Amino acid sequence: MTTDLDRATVEEAYARWAPVYDMVFGAVFEAGRKVAMKAAENIGGRILEFGVGTGIALPNYKRSNRIVGVDISEPMLQKARERVQKEKLDHVEGLCLMDGAHMGFADNSFDVVIAQFVITVVPQPEETLDEMARVLKPGGEIILVNHLGAEDGPRAAFEKWFARRARKLGWRPEFQFARLRNWAVQNGTVDLPVPKDVGLGMYTMVRFRKRSEAEVAGAVEGVKLAG
């Protein structure tokens, strides 16, 4: 069974979710969003909200920050644009339709990249994380908050069984923390992450700090010496 989603499936699913997303998921994800946003604002600066969706989080950012939102779903972005206009969110620099695996930003463009309940549903998670790391400034952080799949036990078995059915909804329920850790090892430009439970076992926050060029070079040299 494939663990990946294709772009067409994701776009179709979120076109369906767009009219009701805030009503269905707004309160459910609120606690996780607040924790992730607090972590992002402790760094502050220019923030990329990846998977901005309907823009439900945009009004809650401090006006001292500059926010750029991207999403793969045009119907979701249209909701976000309406929100920005209606609520006069002048701290939002722009809202862009982009494939996360091929973002059109220059290297080192953002102080923080935040993705709330999205990394497990993008078509190419590892390639998307590579792009997040590329556009992030050294010393900045990628901050994810998500439901992550269980490693073992009854919940893991259920998530594996449910995975095929969940694809039509645009979900990947069996996505585990190990996949994020493995990406960090392979990418080599970020510190290894430590997961933090932020939702009574339902939601996990994962943070990656981007290393400086000197740190990356030192890590590579250390591997060579160890070998």
Results as ranks from 00 to 15, higher is better:
Glu87Gly: 08
Gly100Ser: 03
Phe158Ser: 00
Lys160Trp: 10
Ser64Pro: 00
Ala18Gly: 03
Glu126His: 05
Ala31Val: 10
Cys96Trp: 15
Ala219Pro: 01
Ala39Thr: 11
Leu48Cys: 00
Ala163Trp: 11
Pro195Thr: 04
Arg155His: 11
Val223Ile: 13
Val135Gly: 08
Val198Leu: 03
Gly153Asn: 10
Tyr61Asp: 00
Val24Asp: 08
Ile143Lys: 04
Thr2Gly: 09
Glu127Lys: 15
Ala157Pro: 03
Asp197Ala: 07
Phe25Gln: 10
Phe208Asn: 11
Glu159Asn: 01
Met1Lys: 00
Val20Thr: 05
Glu174Cys: 08
Val206Leu: 06
Ile143Cys: 04
Ala157His: 06
Gly140His: 12
Asn187Ser: 06
Ala184Trp: 01
Phe117Gly: 02
Met1Gly: 01
Leu48Met: 01
Arg16Phe: 07
Arg7His: 09
Asp152Trp: 09
Leu5Arg: 04
Arg81Ala: 14
Ala40Thr: 12
Met202Tyr: 02
Pro19Arg: 01
Glu30Val: 05
Leu95Arg: 12
Leu180Gly: 14
Met205His: 06
Ala31Ser: 14
Val68Ala: 13
Glu11Trp: 10
Glu41Lys: 04
Phe177His: 07
Val70Pro: 00
Asp191Leu: 14
Arg7Ile: 13
His102Gly: 11
Arg16His: 08
Gln186Val: 12
Arg167Ser: 11
Asp152Phe: 09
Val92Met: 09
Leu89Lys: 09
Pro75Asn: 14
Val24Glu: 09
Ala106Lys: 11
Arg167Cys: 07
Val223Lys: 14
Asp99Trp: 08
Leu77Ile: 13
Ala18Thr: 07
Tyr203Phe: 02
Ala18Glu: 04
Met202Glu: 01
Ala18Ser: 07
Glu159His: 00
Leu129Arg: 06
Glu41His: 08
Gly153Val: 06
Cys96Glu: 15
Ala115Glu: 00
Val28Glu: 01
Leu95Ile: 10
Val10Pro: 15
Asn108Ala: 13
Ala214Asp: 05
Val198Gln: 00
Ser73Gly: 13
Glu215Leu: 14
Glu174Asn: 10
Gly201Glu: 03
Glu131Ala: 07
Val122Pro: 02
Glu126Ser: 06
Glu215Arg: 12
Thr120Lys: 07
Gly139Cys: 00
Leu77Ser: 13
Asn146Glu: 15
Gln186Leu: 13
Val223Pro: 07
Met98Cys: 09
Glu87Met: 11
Gly51Tyr: 14
Phe158Val: 00
Ala36Gly: 11
Val145Pro: 03
Glu74His: 12
Ala18Trp: 11
Arg165Lys: 14
Phe175Trp: 10
Gly139Asp: 04
Ala163Arg: 14
Ile67Cys: 07
